[in-house]
Design a protein around this nucleic acid. Structure first.
Lengths: 144, 144
DNA sequence: CTCTAAATAGAAATGATTTCGTTTTAGAAT
DNA sequence: ATTCTAAAACGAAATCATTTCTATTTAGAG
């Protein structure tokens, strides 16, 4: 388990520090997504010293290296999710219990139906947004 | 023009106040999305008094009534976009020039290709997330 | 024209997230 | 094993976009 994580971290070019591993471990055990502060509150018992900024920093770095997924939440706070699925996929997020379910394919209309058919529940809204550079901007590749 | 907006506001059950209309007008003239503060800076010349909270409040209300669209931005700040398209659709957002282009259909893979084929440019990332209630939660419809 | 609920002002608070300078540590090299 | 160095962590403090609060103003129905 933690060996796994250490390997994944190495692969991502990150040091396998105890705190980093603990964050991964805790998030993996989590059935759904969690906020930095929640993780910090639970984790700081395990260490004599653990700063909240360290949790923020690690979650962001891990998310940037693709080890974790970031959840886009209506309340605009940060939430992270441990997702072992390395295939291209999307997530169904339950706003009530925070459970995250993988959605293997794209194609939204059919998607919603399939999700509700398979898992039951109800899709209240979805977010689909493509980010990138338009024709004019792709050339001189700046980000404003 | 402003008649239109007044009608749209009435339809949404909102009073057609001068400031509200000015916000709509300015955002409609905008080629892309804008932040509350940007709009406020440009609008406060037109009024002897205009508070930033008023702009925030109105943008949120207008977005909630579907008159405006909210943009999900990597920097996690609020941006709004005037979108006259009343059909179900999604947006392609240029992170460089802020232009917003409508995407008429869903189906992501094909979608990205179509967007780049039609408009040129480059899709750097996309966000697809379904929000809702899972089977277990749909019954006692609480939001945590 | 009146009246009332909705909208606004503006200062102040909020609070999640980030920054900063210093100290510690993982892990490669010796 | 020991040394060394870049990366990681600390934690107090800062940031700053966003929201709250109470008093005042106003749109628009009657």
């Amino acid at each position: 388990m933690e060996q796994c994580h250490a390997t994944a971290l190495k692969a991502a070019g990150m040091k396998a520090t105890p705190k980093r591993l603990a964050i991964l471990e805790m998030l993996e055990a989590e059935p759904g997504y969690a906020s930095p502060e929640e993780l910090w509150k639970r984790l700081k018992d395990r260490f004599d010293r653990l700063g909240l900024p360290t949790v923020y920093r690690n979650l962001e770095e891990l998310s940037a290296s693709g080890v974790l997924s970031k959840v886009i939440h209506p309340n605009r706070q940060l939430y992270y999710y441990f997702c072992s699925n390395r295939e291209h996929h999307h997530h169904f997020v339950c706003l009530s219990c925070r459970k995250v379910e993988d959605i293997p394919a794209c194609g939204i209309e059919a998607l919603e139906q399939e999700v509700t058919r398979r898992n039951g529940g109800k899709v209240l809204s979805h977010i689909l947004q493509l980010n990138g550079l338009c024709g004019g901007c792709a050339d001189n590749g700046e980000i404003r």
